[in-house]
Structure formats: C-alpha cells, structure tokens
Write a protein that binds this DNA or RNA. Structure first.
Lengths: 328, 328
DNA sequence: CTGTTAGCGCTTTCAT
DNA sequence: ATGAAAGCGCTAACAG
C-alpha cells in the first residue's frame, strides 16, 4: 500500500510551499495564475487527493453528520421516510450516513457508523442499555418508540389514537363486525402487539376473536385476509397492521371476488404513497411522515446546538390521521 | 457557540495527561481502574465528545466512504438497489453517505458530499464535463450509463439485449402485435429513448405505431395502458418501460376486464420484487441488481486500491434476463 | 501504570 | 504573490 500523497509532496514537486498549494486547489486568489497552473498540474501528475479528515479538522465550519438506520429497504414505509429525511437533512446542512438494519444487527450497524457521525436516527428496537452502549455515547433519536435513558430521545407516533380514530371511523361508515390483520411479528419494525392491544381496546369484545396474524409483507397480508374471511365470513371491515399487508389484502379481495369497500372495508396503517396504486386505492391511517421527519430533525438540531452532549430524554409526538381513499 | 471541549480539557479536569484520557475512553487497558473512572467521569461532566476527524486523521486504518446518489426514493427500483448496495458495502468495509437527486439537482448533491467521501456511485445523468467538475476530481462509478472521461467509470446494463430477449420471448409465446409503453421522460432515471429505440429495432415496422408514452409512475402506466388498448384493440402484448409503469398496466387491465396474459401479455423492465405482489404477478426483464451492485463495488475497490486517483474509464456490463412470472 | 514526544495533513494567521 | 510558523484534536511510540 503506497504511502499517501500529501500536500507536501505536491509542494515539493511544484517547488512551492504548502500554503501555495492550498491556495491553488481551493482557488482562493492571491496567487499567480502561472504558479497555480503549475501546482494544479503537479496535483494531477501525482494523483493528489486532499485528506477530508485533515481538512475538516482544521476548518472552522463544523460539518454535522447523522447516522440513519433504516429498518428495511423492502418496505416502502421505511424508504419513503428515508427519502424525506435525506432531503430535509440536506436542506438543513446535515450529512447523512446510512446503514440498513435489515440484514445486519442493530448493534453492529451502530458500531460501524459510530466513528463517522455525531448522532443516530432511526427505527431501533434494541433495549435501552444495549442501545446506549452500541451508540458509544452518541445521542440517539428514536423513531416511533421512546427511550428512557439520557441520550435517548424520541419522536413517537400516537398509535393508540390512530387505532381509535380508525375504528370509530369504520363504525361511522356502518361497519359492525371489524376484524384485524396483525403482524406475526418477526419482521423489523414490529411493535409488539401494541396495535393489536389498542384494536382490542376499541373494537370491543365481539371483535377480539377476529384477529389473524400474518407475515409482514404483501403476500402475508393476502394470506391473512383469505384466512380471515374464511374463518369469519361475517366480517365487514378489516384493520390491517400496515399498508404493505393491506395491499395484499386488497389484492386477495380481488382474487376472491369480494367487493371492497362494498362488502368489506379495508383500512391500512402508514399512509404509503403506494396505496394509491392499487384498485380500490387504499384507505389508511397515515403516520404523517413529514411531521415525523421534521420533529426528528428539530431534535437533531437541538442536539447539535448542545454539542451532542448527553441530554435528558426529549420527546415529540406526531398524531396519525385518516387518509381516506377508496378501500374504506 | 461555546468552544469545543477537547481531550485537553478533560485531561486537565481529571488531572492526568491526554494519553491517559485516550486510554480511558478507548478502554485500551494499561490503566488503573480508578483513574479510568475519574477520567470517564470528567468526560461526562464536561460533555466531551472526541472529534471524529482528529481521530480518523491520526488512525492508520483508512476508512473509506462512498457517496451514493439515489435518483428517487419513490421508485422501488432505486431503493432496492440502494438497499443491496448498502448491505454489501458494509460487508466490504465501506461507509455510505447518501443523497437524493430527486429534489436536489445532481451537481448540488455531488458538491455537498464531495468533502466527505472518496468516490461517488449512482445513477447520474449529468453531462460528462459537468459531472467531472461537480465531483471535484473524485472518481465516479456510473450506473446504467457510460462516461467517456478519465475518472468516470461505469456499470452498464445491456438494455438492447434485454429488449431483444423480451421481444423474441413474447414472439415465442405467440404474440404477434406487440405494443410498447414508453416513459414520457420527465422523471429521474429516464434513459432518452434507448429502450424505445431498441423496441422499434426488434419489434419491427408493424409495431412501431403502437407506442404510448406515460408518466413514470404506477398511475402513469395505467393510463398509458388504457390509451394503448383503446387506440389499438388488436395489441396482444405490451412491453413496458419499467416495472412501476407495468404495475399500473396490470392494474388497469384488471379494471378494464382484460385477461392477462390470455388476451394481452404484459412484460415490465427491472425485475422489482414488488412485481410478485400483483395479480397476475409481473413478468419482467430483470436487471439483476445483485450483479450490478457487485460490479459497482468491485470498481470501488479497484479505485480505492489506486488511492482514488484518476484512472482511464473502466467498464463493466451486466446482462438482463427474463424473469418469468405470470403476466406474460 | 502514566507521561512525554512526535506527528497525522491540512489551513489559518502573519510576515515578507 | 509567496512563505514561515502555529496549530486543529487526537493517538502511536516510546520513555519512565
């Protein structure tokens, strides 16, 4: 491994001082056009690349970087959030390093990024203690989950409120026998039974039996829907764990010849753009990604202001709302 | 903005030398447990965070970072690639910084990242010269497109071959009147008419008239399909610009009551996982993301080996292949 | 176990 | 217009 070409090598080769090289490559004026060309040529010849570390170390303007942990690149919910976050982060002067926690485990992903970023943001399910350890003292902004330790901040989503609104809206539209498709719980992003718990709280005793769990995917949702209407033909509305599964449910209803929303209303959870693409378009409890992203970045800015120190937990909450389309 | 807390401040506060602080925070042994605790406590009290730049500057082990430019987070094609790339990159010891070129323009995105990475990878449509300028001398690995200047390398996809294979496969299965849904061309990732050009080359004169352009989205594809079968009821197969649009076409065929593949065969382009989710599942010319990603990372490694110098263009090509599912 | 000495590669003064 | 000196904040290598 050849030794790195430094600014000194260039200076020597061009017969000037390092400062002159700096002036040339950053075209900061105060330099003779001829020497500048000579220096630039030397750079090219030697294949000189300035060290980004050395430069950032010395430059006043502090560059801020966040590590974004994406739970899955196969669930559009996460990629839509990642996309929004990326755009807003850039606008607000943040660099974003990403890691997927889909294959890798969370601790490993955090660990890998810890030397390169100032804080972490993401959907993380690691226990508080492990999280704090893996983050190596860097602050963490948790998405859709709270943390209890100093240094762990959060933007939560009021799921309970979402379920309440959805169930009552379904009722308003005439549904009487509401079932639910729950996640079987293996995938990333699974919130242990909270949605189901709230569902049972609001849908009432009569509906509690009409819950089927499935794989957290389109096909999983389709199968679960088929099972559900098979076991409970009287069901007239279904609340689905997330939009991906709800998409499958809509698909399955087509295949089964079940009229949606005529015979069964289907309501998803997440408000994915993708939901517009199926027929009938998916009605969903929308988690308002923009608000989520905004709050997360606000927290990041606060943390940056505090020099990424360990602050007591800060919490923000975003409220879901109904996104009416066609399926309900 | 308060002055940064440095290792010196901690050392002074704990009454030890900087080196001892280093030992404590990186728990490298050779340190008394008591002093270690004292130091750690001082760190906490002062809110000390080590500078990642200073650390990276001094540590021998060179950390490599690539800037990944993602054309769109709304098209699963790009996010699936990004996810694969992220996973493989981590395995191979790369850090990945991402920027979206969906809202921001490419030059601005490159510019933003140029100080933080060693090379760029992505679907970029900027002209060679502008690209080289915006990259600030860093090497670029172009995806699905070639570059002609030194420093611009590429992993191309043999689209022509893909179209040829698709058309002849459609023929083999009995299609005689093959139409095409093209991209109207505004979106990111639009390859100016090459797919259409190849289509016309292989589908022959009779089919040339049966081309409809649409928005590069699911709904755009659906509308285009409706237009196409409206204008040309005799069409018995449709090659679609990409899977997103093809998904819309399948959707539309359901709505129109057109049997797929019975009356019309539909073939997309990209091989999205999402294509499995619709009914009938989407047959597609698969671009083999894994090979694409592998080749891109191979190039990145070669470039790293060469210390990210300016090398003459390196080119790799991946061949698409038919991904038979149900729609054709 | 702990401190001292030397840098890492670059940019900012400040002279000249 | 150019150069010399002085760090940025950290860790490796050596002393003690």
């Amino acid at each position: 491994m050849a030794k790195r070409v430094t600014i000194n090598d260039v200076a020597r080769a061009a017969g000037v001082s390092r400062q002159t090289v700096t002036r040339a490559i950053n075209n900061m004026g105060e330099i003779n056009e001829q020497t500048k060309q000579r220096v630039l040529e030397a750079c090219e010849r030697l294949g000189y690349r300035p060290s980004r570390f050395a430069r950032n170390l010395v430059v006043r303007k502090k560059s801020r970087a966040m590590g974004l942990l994406v739970a899955s690149f196969r669930n559009p919910y996460y990629t839509e959030i990642a996309g929004d976050l990326l755009n807003s982060a850039a606008e607000r002067g943040w660099h974003v390093l990403m890691a997927s926690t889909e294959t890798e485990d969370e601790a490993a992903a955090l660990d890998m990024l810890s030397g390169q970023v100032d804080l972490f943001v993401g959907h993380l399910w690691l226990a508080d203690d492990d999280l704090a350890r893996a983050a190596r003292g860097l602050p963490v902004v948790l998405l859709e989950r709270a943390g209890e330790r100093p240094g762990l901040h959060s933007v939560e989503v009021d799921i309970r409120e979402g379920v309440r609104v959805a169930v009552s809206a379904l009722r308003d539209r005439g549904a009487r026998r509401i079932g639910m498709i729950d996640s079987a719980g293996s995938g990333p992003g699974y919130v242990p039974s909270s949605r189901r718990g709230y569902f049972e709280e609001f849908a009432g005793a009569g509906s509690a039996g009409m819950v089927v769990a499935g794989d957290e995917s389109i096909t999983g949702g389709g199968r679960a829907f088929t099972d559900l209407v098979g076991a409970h033909p009287e069901v007239d509305a279904v609340l689905v764990f997330n939009d991906l599964m709800a998409l499958g449910a809509v698909q399955a209803s087509n295949a089964l010849g079940i009229d949606v929303p005529g015979r069964v209303r289907i309501c998803g959870f997440d408000g994915l753009t993708l939901g517009e693409a199926v027929h009938p378009a998916l009605t969903s409890v929308s988690l308002d990604r923009h608000a989520l992203v905004r709050e997360a970045l606000d927290l990041a800015d606060v943390l940056a202001e505090a020099d990424f120190g360990v602050l007591p937990p800060m919490r923000r909450t975003v409220r879901p709302r109904m996104l009416w389309r066609e399926s309900a």
